[in-house]
Design a binder for these strands. Structure first.
Length: 189
DNA sequence: ATCTAGATCGGCT
DNA sequence: GCCGATCTAGATG
């Protein structure tokens, strides 16, 4: 997807990313997933967003649209975001779940899940990054061009809005977007 | 220098 | 449903 796609209002980007493809050219071959769950984190007026204060970590949210923002959550889990809005305006979309489309075997290996339901291999932000081999070194990479990790247009089915997960502030805002028909959601809407 | 909360997950009850 | 793991950025002193 071109940089102009990400340079739009964060809520628009979060909604329209549902159905797009997340592509990872890994050393073990290509991994592809259909994005089925996202959350918008705004700049101004969103106390749940890391951009609530402009710090060294969150500075990237003011950067170029289409940039990866990757951080460690609870000391154990890696979360992948895409920076939104024009440069100089803060915003990002958290990728919370994808439906595995290609490279399921490699995802199983990375997840340490030889058996089990393939649909749940990347059903959650921490699971997604583990299945796709995304670590903190991906922070700052450009996802708007083909490379080790990028986003490509897909087929949009249904999209529903619901409240974001795991946050304390602004818990009433319906800024989570899901394909309600997907078996790969981290939770039901 | 020290403290604390956190955009989670998996195992156990 | 509850709980502990594990660690860092940011805040406070």
């Amino acid at each position: 997807l071109p940089r102009t796609f990400f340079a739009r209002p964060t809520l628009e980007v979060a909604r329209s990313l549902v159905g797009a493809w997340l592509v990872r050219e890994s050393p073990d071959g290509p991994l592809v997933g259909r994005i089925v769950e996202t959350e918008a984190y705004l700049g101004i007026g969103d106390p749940a967003s890391h951009a609530r204060s402009r710090t060294q970590r969150s500075e990237i949210m003011w950067g170029a649209p289409g940039t990866a923002y990757v951080y460690l959550s609870y000391g154990t889990h890696v979360c992948l975001n895409v920076v939104t809005e024009p440069a100089g305006v803060a915003g990002a979309v958290l990728l919370r779940a994808v439906e595995p489309v290609h490279g399921v075997l490699a995802m199983r290996v990375r997840r340490g899940a030889p058996g089990g339901d393939a649909a749940r291999l990347a059903a959650g932000p921490g699971r997604l990054t583990q299945a796709f081999g995304i670590d903190l070194t991906f922070n700052g990479r450009d996802l708007a061009r083909p490379g080790a990790l990028y986003v490509a247009p897909g087929l949009t089915r249904r999209v529903e809005a619901s409240t974001r997960i795991g946050i304390r502030h602004a818990a009433d805002k319906p800024w989570r977007f899901v394909d309600p028909d997907s078996p790969s959601l981290s939770r039901k809407p």
